[in-house]
């Protein structure tokens, strides 16, 4: 009996719930199926052509890129700053790390609900704060651009702790003697950072960027809770828009095509970044 039997159960789950859906989704993307009736006919590339023309989808795609890139930028800057500040020994370091990290473990649905209490127009906690300096009250979630920016910010703050601990682990892997040697040669704070810390953090930067970018491009939960894609469809990501197109607009074929676009987008980004950031190969 071969030891390969050990992976048969996992392989069965994989084929049934990953490979088969992917293939069947690909097939559906060439049909006009509504998701319910028995009728479906082959329409070739019509759904994909429609995606190119669809101005709503174009905005959804742009939002998705903003969610991905925006979150990545904010998380790298804040995450690295937090890691640098919390790397050296000081009182309360453990507690501060734990507080910054806490939201990573909380369901984004819960974070979104709690943030809504801050962002609400009537009696919202943030408006109370800006009111102290005589500004506002603002309807934070009323405009498309403002809402997109707030979603980026909320997502970044929720997961900044993940970047922080990745950078902390990276900082701790840099041998102290490099700093000592450079100091003997007369290097100072900023030079040490630019010539030792940053180059040696490369693997940590790569890990954090890939994780944040993919996470941002797949964003779903926070959008659903904070704006539910609105006003109109203006804050949807591709992920949330797939659900809307399938269940609300009853266009299963069209939603499948969006699914394929999302899959290709994530795959291309992952492969490109892995190559670009020169990570060690995962396999063999």
């Amino acid at each position: 009996m071969s030891i390969n039997l050990f992976y048969v159960p996992a392989l069965l789950v994989f084929v049934a719930l990953t490979v088969y859906p992917l293939i069947s989704g690909f097939q559906m993307s060439f049909t006009n199926w509504d998701g319910y009736s028995a009728a479906r006919s082959f329409v070739g590339l019509e759904n994909y052509a429609r995606l190119l023309q669809d101005t709503t989808f174009r905005q959804v795609l742009a939002n998705t890129v903003v969610y991905g890139v925006g979150s990545t930028l904010i998380q790298q800057v804040l995450g690295l700053a937090l890691a640098l500040a919390l790397d050296r020994p000081m009182r309360g370091r453990g507690v501060l790390r734990a507080i910054v990290y806490l939201p990573v473990l909380v369901s984004p649905v819960i974070m979104g609900t709690m943030y809504y209490l801050l962002l609400q127009y009537n009696n919202g906690a943030l408006n109370d704060l800006v009111g102290l300096v005589g500004a506002g009250p603002f309807a934070w979630l009323s405009s498309a651009n403002g809402s997109v920016a707030i979603i980026v910010l909320v997502n970044s703050l929720q997961f900044v702790g993940l970047s922080m601990i990745i950078y902390l682990a990276g900082l701790q892997s840099i041998p102290e003697m490099y700093y000592e040697a450079a100091s003997l040669d007369g290097a100072r704070g900023r030079q040490l950072f630019a010539h030792i810390t940053l180059p040696l953090l490369r693997p940590a930067i790569a890990t954090s960027v890939i994780l944040n970018l993919i996470g941002g491009l797949k964003l779903f939960d926070i959008i659903k809770v904070l704006t539910n894609g609105g006003p109109g469809y203006s804050t949807n990501s591709v992920s949330t828009f797939i659900g809307v197109t399938y269940f609300d607009a009853q266009s299963a074929g069209y939603a499948s095509a969006m699914g394929i676009v999302l899959f290709v987008m994530i795959m291309a980004t992952t492969l490109a970044l892995n190559g670009l950031l020169n990570r060690r190969r995962l396999d063999s």
Partner: peptide
């Protein structure tokens, strides 16, 4: 060779976002 291929297939599936297969998964 077979096992390397199976491993790569598992790894590759990390790149499939759950929502991208919402329609076929829900239908199934």
């Amino acid at each position: 060779r077979l096992n390397k291929l199976v491993f790569l297939a598992f790894l590759g599936s990390l790149m499939i976002p759950p929502l991208s297969v919402l329609v076929p998964i829900y239908t199934l």
